[in-house]
Design a protein around this nucleic acid. Sequence first.
DNA 1: ATAAAAAAGTGATATAAATCATTTATATAA
DNA 2: TTATATAAATGATTTATATCACTTTTTTAT
Lengths: 238, 238
Amino acid sequence: MSLDSNMSEIVNISFDKTFENCKLPINQLLTTEQQAIIMDNINIVSYNRKDIIVKQFSASSHIYYIIKGILKVSSEQRKGKNLVVKIDTTGSFVGLISLLGGDSYNFTVTAVENCTLAQIPIATLKSVMLQNSRFALEISQLTCRHGLFLVNRLAGLLYKQLPGRVADLILYFADDIFCNNEFEFPANRTELAELCGTTKESLIRTLSEFNHDRIIELQRNRIRIISYDILKTLSRFG
Amino acid sequence: MSLDSNMSEIVNISFDKTFENCKLPINQLLTTEQQAIIMDNINIVSYNRKDIIVKQFSASSHIYYIIKGILKVSSEQRKGKNLVVKIDTTGSFVGLISLLGGDSYNFTVTAVENCTLAQIPIATLKSVMLQNSRFALEISQLTCRHGLFLVNRLAGLLYKQLPGRVADLILYFADDIFCNNEFEFPANRTELAELCGTTKESLIRTLSEFNHDRIIELQRNRIRIISYDILKTLSRFG
DNA sequence: ATAAAAAAGTGATATAAATCATTTATATAA
DNA sequence: TTATATAAATGATTTATATCACTTTTTTAT
């Protein structure tokens, strides 16, 4: 009860500035009425670390906007073989490609830390797209950029060998997620391995080597990049 | 000269029915005026086998529509390491994801057999998208489906081992490209290997095994599927 | 505080597929 | 036709990394 009322307070605060950090300038693109359509149909939901937000192959009619938090988007390849295709954070849309391309999720989405998400019916989004072609074009460009990012990432996993892929992993967190040379991995070794398309043992070994070779300084989840240049080189020559 | 006049004749015939085989119902989606805008800005070009249509990383302002032919879309990973991400045929758009997501091509596009393509300025496409939000939404859904296809294909390459990937290759041509159990590979062993993310030697060995095990009947480029079911199983259990 | 469970780490071994070296077959040109 | 180049095929070897078995450390629960 106390938790519930506390929650709804958070929800209201967040609600007002929902699209503040959005990678798409929603507020410039949409008329006040169009914004209202979205706002009226939005639903704010909170998740705890490890909560499954959506399950691969499940039919769904909602996409998500990340108000706050970090989540992972993964593809279950077979029993016990998981591939984390990307990490998403505040300001991103989740499920856009899946629900514009079909009517079920192609990926499992899991909270990596506590998350506050806005649930948006895909029908609402589509109706606004139909009312506002500029917005439709922008959404279309956004999904294309996402698609290209994924394809490039997977092609990298396919052709680079472990040192290159682990370098990419570290650079991904440092440059794209935390914008900092020093950070705490928001995931355990198994999850990190799944981000590199490898096993936890192989990931651990490679990280230990980097640590030993003083490319990084690593203690448990805390990592500091010592030589950004070497990581870049490893990434390039994979 | 004789070739040229012959060519322009072909061009005119093709021009009239340009979007006949299009995966998008252009003629239903667009008004006559909008169709005219596209038609007025279209340019028909022919390519021979092995011709490079666009080069990865090159800046470009045109997408392509395949009036007739087969082409491959590939990503140069490093010197000598090529990944063919997909094969495209009659009725498909090429470069849509690249040019909606940015302003240069992310892939090299090469004619696999003689091709007739319609070159469409991306600006023209965007302007029609801005005039017609239904069309914009459809284009957006099309690019999302493409993106998902690519991601699933690459994830498959990443997790399946060779027999599974080669089975996928054969099924891809049989089901998606030629719609026939018997066909001629439109590419040499190196190109086929690049479609599986492997080397020509490994691909040859796997194909030979399939042939020896009477899963397929293979002589040079001519292939006939003997057991579709075994291929499906190999694909599934990778 | 201690026990139990989970995660991280290490070493030995196995294995799929790449690489290298060579041969055989097919296509192209002189 | 014969020579030359290109593509396909095969065998031997190497290599990166997965797998398996186990220890150590950290976290969680009692």
